[in-house]
Design a protein around this nucleic acid. Structure first.
Lengths: 148, 148
DNA sequence: GATACTTGATAATTATAAATATCAAGTTCT
DNA sequence: AGAACTTGATATTTATAATTATCAAGTATC
């Protein structure tokens, strides 16, 4: 049971071993806001299979595609969360994620709107854009379906 | 006369001096596909005032925002040129700029469609997105106006 | 026709991002 | 209680992106 790939089961050391990287690197990705691992009450991190896949994708973008972390953050900041979550205009006005373009939306402490009640780790915006290549195809479908 | 900021008037050495950078750097940006300077019949480059502004913006993104050139290219590749130029479906099928997400559209040698007849340097897609921060706001207006 | 530019290409340099090592202190778990 | 983890933080190392220097050959300009 619990074959659910979203379930957080790996400690940071096993995650690091599985990924072939060091523990500080994992902490660094988190500090930069690229990943949102599960946290136990004791503040201990746990990673799911989906988390590992996401981190592999991030590493490929950094190491193979040569896109810096700041670049990845700006790309992720373009995900139209306001559209996906159907924010109200009032929500948008108060939302740094909407106004800025430096960090993914899950980097901000949302207190108002839909995001105020959500856990980013379980949010569609976070879950559906693990691969940043998906962002362009999302915009493609928006533009192509607009006038249908 | 010719106060038009689009007119190519600066040689590469004066452009480099005005920008405070070296000539090889300017050639590098061009080789990477970030800029498309005017070229005389003799292959000599000329830069306009708009070109200089664009290059300043690129430099700020690289040096201040810490976004790598590969990152800028991926961001620029997300500009919905197919939507701006109203490409046909047939155009899109043949278009690398539509399918890939590594280079801005003006990096590809278009032979078919609207782009086949255009000079990228004078294209709306190139001209309107000198600042890559404009891309997100473009998507904002698309998503917000969609259901109006 | 001579001086000062340009071209592309390669090599060397500089800057800095990404990753790791190490630390003291606090948890987890048998 | 003790062995093996965890936490955050700082310092260091490594990798490599960004920039510049230099070259021979061609072009512009006076």
């Amino acid at each position: 049971m619990s074959k659910n790939p979203e379930t957080p089961v790996f400690t940071i050391s096993t995650a690091a071993t599985l990924l072939g990287i060091s523990i500080p690197t994992l902490r660094m990705y988190e500090k930069e806001g690229l990943i949102v691992p599960f946290k136990k009450e004791s503040n201990q991190r746990l990673y799911s299979q989906t988390d590992l896949d996401r981190i592999r994708c991030i590493r490929e973008t950094i190491n193979k595609d040569k896109i810096s972390i700041a670049g990845i953050k700006r790309i992720l900041s373009m995900i139209p969360c306001w559209d996906i979550l159907r924010c109200t205009e009032q929500d948008r006005i108060n939302c740094l994620a909407f106004k800025e373009h430096t960090n993914p939306c899950w980097d901000y402490n949302h207190t108002t709107g839909i995001c105020g009640t959500k856990n980013c780790r379980e949010c569609d915006v976070y879950l559906n854009f693990a691969e940043c290549s998906k962002i362009k195809s999302h915009f493609i479908s928006i533009t192509l379906n607009r006038n249908s």
